[in-house]
Design a protein around this nucleic acid. Structure first.
Length: 496
RNA sequence: GCCCCCAUCGUCUAGAGGCCUAGGACGGGGCCCUCUCAAGGCCCAAACUGGGGUUCGAAUCCCCAUGGGGGCACCA
């Protein structure tokens, strides 16, 4: 059982090489939950040691994404902290020193092999159907010779010396002991020609120096797990708790999320990128709830707020198996959380979407609209379809939509005229006053409510689907309702 | 090819040897409500991959098979 009485220090350590995605967000969430649960610290560390792949703006997106999700970090590049800097390129000297420590105590060595040679070795191994691995050429070099070549200006990397014999046992919190024969391991590069470390060195050094107690990371790291454990042990450090999280599979469950699949999701109105999700109208609450439950589960009542999650979260109960993403379920959680918002809250969340869509939003009016649309929204973006017409001067219904089922244009025009008459006779169009006479009209015409109200709906809102008719008309106001009805009558009359 | 990991309804999961006739959620189907679309309520179908052990007793522990996934970079 995990000890939740000691404050945990956990970190999310993304590399700024692209858009922030679901996997990073979920790891951050679990980190955050653990930190909150133990009154510990949640830390953001930027792993930007691959200069070639670093993308400008990516770091900003990560920080914005975490904050938008409500996963505020206690330490990080832009907030500081006692264990900084929190950007690996700013910790360069630390890695150089630590690499040297390993060389000095015989756990690492300089390697002068060129990329060309390594590539050739790899190809030959592949041809012979062998495992591709470093062949150990430079491991045999004497330290004198290595020193001479370095002094001669030759380029080199530092490789970690993996043991040849025996086995390495690494303990994962969810999987127990993972044992691997050392002969299956090779000597990985820990410090590159450019002087910057690879993940293997940088993450181990930083996790130790930053006093990380629990390392939560994707299970794609399981392959290099023994390497990492060996590095930590070579330094003589205590190990953190290792927790390898399940990875996300594409919706079909066949293979992990790929670029291709990501593009596919966007076409369907979804995305695996946090920034896109925000723009698509998903809420942090819905997203968090959904992500939390991929890789973790609760017995019942799975609608969870942040405080519910903090209360119920348990590392021991995480699920190690891969999880296929299910966007339909995201829709469900998003809608559910939207319905949990107060009217003021929802209005504030929707307003930016309406504004962005070009509507001039009146706050008081929006507040009246919210109760009408709340349970119809899946995303905040849906607010445009359900509330946009309230802010339009005029609407342009599709003429065909004005014709009720079972009626022709002439008959529909007649219905519209009668409705206009009834509504025009009212000093004010509100729900209470308008519904009874309109119901009476349905009776009198021997039609069904669908037909009559449908015509009025399309005329007044410009669309076939809308919030409840009478409540909507009340907000639109008498003048505009009559004006729009009149226009619809004319449209119908001009139809053959 | 080699190494590693995983395995409960279509999907996400609960399950920690007897509380299991296997629970919940999404999705699906049906009914109710209903001015459209939703939301909501009620109901239904749907799973322990297979085979061997261990045990009085296995979804749960062990082994094998099968299936799925991940990794084999001077990327993270």
């Amino acid at each position: 059982m995990t000890d939740y009485t000691r404050p945990a220090r956990v970190r999310v350590a993304p590399s700024p090489t692209g858009h922030m995605h679901l996997g990073t967000a979920r790891t951050a969430l679990y980190d955050y939950l653990l930190a909150k649960k133990t009154s510990g610290k949640f830390i953001l560390r930027i792993e930007d040691t691959d200069l070639k792949r670093t993308i400008p703006g990516a770091e900003r997106e990560i920080m914005d994404g975490l904050r938008w999700l409500g996963l505020d970090y206690d330490e990080g590049p832009d907030v500081g902290g006692a264990f900084g800097p929190y950007r690996q390129t700013e910790r360069r000297d630390l890695y150089t020193q630590h690499a040297k420590m390993l060389v000095d105590n015989g756990h690492a060595y300089p390697c002068f092999c060129t990329p060309d040679r390594l590539e050739k070795v790899r190809q030959e191994q592949q041809k012979r159907k062998e495992t591709t691995r470093y062949d150990g050429t430079c491991r045999k070099l004497s330290s004198d010779e290595a020193a001479r070549r370095i002094a001669g200006g030759e380029k080199y990397v530092i490789r970690f010396k993996m043991p040849f014999e025996g086995s390495t046992t690494a303990r994962d919190l969810l999987r127990g002991d993972i044992v691997i024969e050392n002969k299956n391991l090779d000597d990985s590069v820990i410090l590159k020609t450019d002087g910057l470390p690879t993940y293997h060195l940088a993450a181990m050094v930083d996790d130790h120096l930053m006093q990380i107690t629990h390392v939560l990371r994707g299970s794609e790291w399981l392959g290099t797990f023994p390497l990492h454990v060996n590095i930590v042990r070579a330094f003589g450090w205590d190990e953190p708790e290792w927790v390898h999280l399940s990875i996300f599979l594409k919706p079909s469950g066949k293979g992990k999320m790929s670029k291709r699949e990501a593009a596919e999701a966007v076409k369907d109105g979804y995305s695996i990128f946090i920034k896109d999700m925000q723009e698509l109208g998903f809420t942090p609450e819905g997203l968090l709830n959904w992500m939390a439950l991929m890789g973790w589960g609760v017995a019942e009542n799975d609608v969870l707020t942040m405080s519910d999650m903090i209360e119920k979260f348990s590392l021991d109960h995480l699920n190690p198996s891969p999880a296929a993403v299910n966007f339909q379920k995201l829709d469900h959680f998003n809608g559910t959380h939207i319905r949990l918002f107060s009217t003021d809250e929802l209005a504030a969340r929707i307003k930016p979407f309406l504004t962005k869509a070009g509507f001039n939003v009146d706050d008081a009016r929006l507040l009246r609209i919210i109760p009408l649309i709340r349970e119809r929204l899946v995303t905040l973006d849906d607010g445009i379809d359900f509330a946009g017409f309230f802010f339009k001067e005029t609407v342009e219904p599709n003429p065909d939509d004005l014709i009720a089922k079972g009626l022709d244009a002439r008959q529909s025009a007649n219905v519209a005229r009668k409705a206009h008459e009834i509504l025009a006779a009212l000093p004010e169009i509100n729900h209470a006053a308008a519904e009874p006479p309109m119901r009476a009209l349905v009776e009198k015409l021997a039609l069904n409510p669908n037909q009559v109200f449908g015509i009025v709906r399309v005329a007044v809102t410009g669309q076939k689907v809308s919030p409840p008719l009478f409540e909507s008309m009340e907000i639109i106001g008498r003048a505009k309702v009559l004006e729009r009805l009149q226009k619809a009558i004319e449209m119908l009359e001009s139809m053959p």
